[in-house]
Nucleic acid binder design. Structure first.
Length: 566
RNA sequence: CGGGAUGUAGCGCAGUUUGGUAGCGCGCCUCGUUCGGGACGAGGAGGCCGCAGGUUCGAAUCCUGUCAUCCCGACCA
């Protein structure tokens, strides 16, 4: 491709709306342009990168037993009503009506549609297992699209669905996909980590996320410094402490704590650590107020609490509701005396405290010598704490670490959630109907491209991994005429004949401009034809990820390119 | 959805407080000089000042509404 024929509109200045590196660079380097919030056009360079990522995904899915199909983006409401998700999915589902006033949506995911497809064709156990996948645009009306391609409203996704006769079969499919995903991200040249994850609205009971490591990632990864434990911060857990079994504690007593209306100020006033105190919080779960007790130094993990309660909406309770229950403004709230009023969820770390201090439902006062269970109710004891770096690994006891990641893929064991809701059954050897065990497996293709940029860049621009680079080689003639130009053109034509993916920067620009754009766009290899060619028929060969260039004779270039690309 | 900010040329911005008929840098076009890390000079094109109402002799500027975009939070396969 000649640069003058390539629509790659590079910008010298950063668009004001871009915040994260991948968004800035993809816009500046002429890969994408915004259409509306969270919706982008992929220009030729981006399109090539996406096709490469998709190519890698196809090879790995096919090798794992997948068959590619293409389902409609437009989906009828009936299927979503049947699964129950038409009402549950909420505002994220892009809904519309056709001319006959029938309800439809743009597919945010395809469990309903594929289950409907397979139930129409599946009859015998002999047909299983089946793995079907597609690569297509997905639509989610995000409340807040942001960070360019990282969280869009329209994005490209690969979604594969597995159908097995039993749980053991589903486990095999899950393992096969787990391996295939490792291959995909490794082949894309990305540094990633696999973590245990919350299945969320897709459902099921077992899920892993594939996190591309990057500072701009929206997800927190907790992983162990000593063993292989790694989990999304949303569900990560730390070692459960032993419940307190020390000497007997005298009855609780009122103590004066003027002005100590936060955990920090109370700890300071009493000269004890925040981890010696009890924090009392009130939340509202689908309209019902609940109480949560945590160790003073801890934050609540709302996802854990949400899963424990089994509610859809969870938010801090309104202050008037709290006052109605406790008779006290926040600051000195007490767990004592809540029996029968609200359900109390207690983090297991609280149980490890001996005599502790809690609020007294009276401004300026706390109770000392408070003992969990003896002095306040424990309706549910569990893990509700947000785990942080430095906590103790639940499996090996070594300290946990924290990193940030971009969720590029997630795999789920769905079990029979959708097959039961949509009546997807097969007939087994005994002639009995059985529900199908399903799994689903997604990769954000456009997000993976953004993640690659997020991970592979320097101050000058993108540094594409070879496997997903839009082109492998750029040839930069320092002038657009004379022997230098002729040599560059001949080299380009030669490389084209050999099937090398090359761009010839044939613009009538100064060399500096071409170098800047080459770095910005991020071709893995740059070949400069210039003064060394005039002097001694040599060219400069530079790898994007190395600082220094090497000088080669013109006829050595082809071999060198092949060596570097392989 | 709550909070904050911004909409002026393709991109980055000034002008708005104090109303007087639109400006800078980059990019673009022409000519010349340059030519290995975003050159220089001269000339030129390009703007319903987001949109709709209102106030005024007169609105980019003041008022009302509305739309859009971005940030923080909440939320999220």
């Amino acid at each position: 491709m000649k640069f003058t024929n390539l629509m790659a509109p590079t910008l010298r200045e950063v668009p004001a709306e871009a915040e994260v590196i991948s968004h800035k660079l993809l816009v500046r380097a002429g890969f994408i342009r915004k259409s509306s919030a969270g919706i982008y056009t992929y220009l030729p360079l981006a399109h090539r990168v996406l096709k490469k990522i998709e190519g890698i995904i196809r090879e790995e899915m096919d090798a794992a037993g997948g068959q590619e199909i293409l389902m409609p983006i437009m989906q009828p409401a009936e299927l979503w009503l049947e699964s129950g998700r038409w009402d549950v999915y909420g505002g994220e589902l892009m809904r519309f009506k056709d001319r006959h006033d029938r309800d439809f949506c743009l597919g945010p995911t395809h469990e309903e549609l594929i289950t409907d497809l397979v139930r129409g064709e599946l009859s015998s156990w002999r047909q299983l297992p089946i793995m079907l996948y597609q690569i297509q645009d997905k639509f989610r009306d995000e409340r807040r699209p942001r960070f360019g391609l990282m969280r869009g409203r329209e994005f490209i996704m690969k979604d594969l669905y597995s159908f097995d006769r039993d749980a053991a079969g589903m486990d095999e499919s899950y393992k096969a996909m787990h391996r295939a995903y490792c291959n995909v991200f490794s082949r894309c040249g990305l540094e990633y980590r696999i973590v245990e994850a919350d299945p969320g609205a897709i459902g099921g009971n077992h899920s892993h996320e594939f996190m591309v490591l990057a500072e701009a990632g929206e997800a927190e990864i907790i992983y162990c410094s000593g063993c292989s434990y790694a989990a999304d911060g949303e569900i990560a857990t730390s070692k459960k402490p032993e419940a307190y079994e020390g000497p007997e504690v005298p009855p609780y007593e009122l103590i004066e704590t003027p002005g100590a209306n936060t955990i920090a100020s109370l700890a300071q006033f009493l000269h004890v650590g925040e981890d010696q105190l009890v924090k009392t919080l009130f939340y509202q779960a689908d309209g019902q107020v609940v109480c949560i007790l945590l160790r003073g130094d801890r934050e609540l993990n709302e996802i854990k609490l949400k899963n424990a309660i089994g509610c859809y909406e969870l938010a801090m309770a309104d202050i008037p509701d709290v006052v109605a229950i406790t008779g006290c403004q926040p600051g000195y709230l007490s767990p004592i005396g809540l029996a029968g009023k609200v359900k109390v969820y207690v983090d297991e770390e609280v149980m490890a405290l001996g005599a502790t201090v809690a609020g007294a439902n009276r401004p300026g006062y706390h109770y000392g010598n408070v003992l969990p269970k003896r002095d306040f109710p424990l309706d549910v004891v569990g893990d509700f704490r947000q785990v942080a770096a430095g906590d103790v690994c639940p499996f090996c006891g070594k300290p946990l670490m924290s990193a940030r990641g971009i969720e590029a893929g997630q795999i789920f064991k769905l079990g029979t959630k959708y097959s039961k809701a949509l009546n997807l059954v097969y007939t087994d050897e005994k002639g009995e109907k059985q529900p199908v065990e399903m799994g689903c497996y997604g990769i954000g293709v456009s997000r993976t491209m953004a993640a690659a940029v997020e991970q592979c860049n320097d101050k000058d621009g993108i540094v594409w991994p070879v496997s997903i680079a839009p082109y492998h080689v750029v040839i930069v003639p320092t002038t657009a005429e004379g022997p230098v130009w002729d040599a560059a053109l001949a080299l380009y034509q030669d490389l084209m004949k050999e099937g090398v993916e090359a761009v010839l920067d044939d613009r009538d620009e100064r060399a500096g401009v071409k170098f800047k754009d080459a770095d910005l766009i991020g071709y893995p290899i740059r070949i400069t034809v210039g003064k060394k060619f005039t002097e001694s028929r040599q060219v400069e060969f530079k790898k994007r990820w190395e600082q220094e260039a090497e000088t080669l004779a013109l006829d050595e270039v082809k071999a060198k390119i092949k060596e570097v690309l392989s």
